[in-house]
């Protein structure tokens, strides 16, 4: 169940030239599952901005984001001590029991964000996930060590081969796996699905109005009827996805 609260920025740090990490402290009790998201209200912007939760620990949560537009640039420039109005506990989150004992966690760019906390929770459940993290170049790589520090096999791919495996994340999927969890650009998610016939949990991103199911701004068609990405998503099972959306 969602909550609204004022959170304090406790850490703001660049991870690469484009990607930043922000840690916010406050009432995190509504953030229940990896794959859920939060909506941040930023000065001068009318609509809130959604971000996947990268981690939740103690009384704080972490988000990773690329400064790509007005909102994310504002957020990048927030300093520790800043207060932000946040809606927490949004969306369904990943199903920890849907993808077997040896799932792949497949992320592209900032899409790796929700997979980090997911990895921690899967490990806690006794599973043995492998992380496949896709980037464009070596300079774009972030959170590789953080995933490795969880004690899981972590494979980095770069499109130009400047670090790790040369190619796309899908080029690293050729290994035994019980299923997969994936988040990133939609073309990547589609390609991931075409490379595996195992169970899959896919996290989607859509332009949203409210983020909590009231405005019907992000409804997609699925084999299980209409679903609001913000409420019945953002995670959909691969079996219910209709790609024409």
């Amino acid at each position: 169940m969602m909550k609204q609260g004022i959170f304090t920025v406790t850490e703001s740090s660049p991870l690469t030239e484009k990607v930043s990490r922000l840690v916010l402290r406050g009432d995190v009790s509504a953030i229940e599952r990896p794959g859920q998201f939060v909506q941040l209200r930023l000065d001068g912007l009318y609509l809130r901005r959604p971000f996947s939760v990268c981690d939740r620990a103690g009384d704080s949560f972490t988000i990773l984001f690329e400064a790509a537009g007005k909102g994310t640039r504002l957020l990048r420039d927030e300093k520790p001590g800043a207060e932000i109005d946040v809606l927490t506990g949004l969306g369904n989150g990943f199903d920890l029991f849907a993808c077997g004992d040896t799932p792949l966690l497949i992320g592209g760019g900032t899409g790796i964000s929700p997979l980090y906390w997911l990895a921690k929770e899967l490990i806690r459940e006794g599973r043995r996930p492998t992380a496949l993290l896709g980037f464009n170049t070596a300079a774009d790589v972030f959170y590789e060590e953080d995933f490795r520090a969880l004690g899981i096999e972590t494979v980095v791919t770069t499109a130009n081969g400047s670090r790790g495996v040369k190619g796309y994340v899908t080029d690293a999927m050729d290994r035994p796996h019980s299923g997969f969890y994936t988040c990133g650009p939609e073309d990547m998610i589609k390609a991931v699905c075409s490379r595996s016939d195992r169970p899959g949990q896919l996290s989607f991103d859509r332009r949203m109005g409210c983020g909590f199911g009231a405005c019907m701004g992000c409804t997609v068609k699925t084999t299980n009827g209409l679903k609001r990405i913000c409420k019945e998503g953002p995670v959909l099972d691969r079996k219910e996805v209709l790609w024409e959306n």
Binding site: L45, Y46, M208, G209, C215, M216, G217, C218, T219, L226
Partner: peptide, 30 residues
Amino acid sequence: KGTTLQPRAGNRLPRIAEGNAGMLNAVGLQ
């Protein structure tokens, strides 16, 4: 929520945009 005789799936996405002091919607009576 606006109600019609038949069920309606609404418009294609994106249905939401933003202005300087407001928002645009084109939900289409879902």
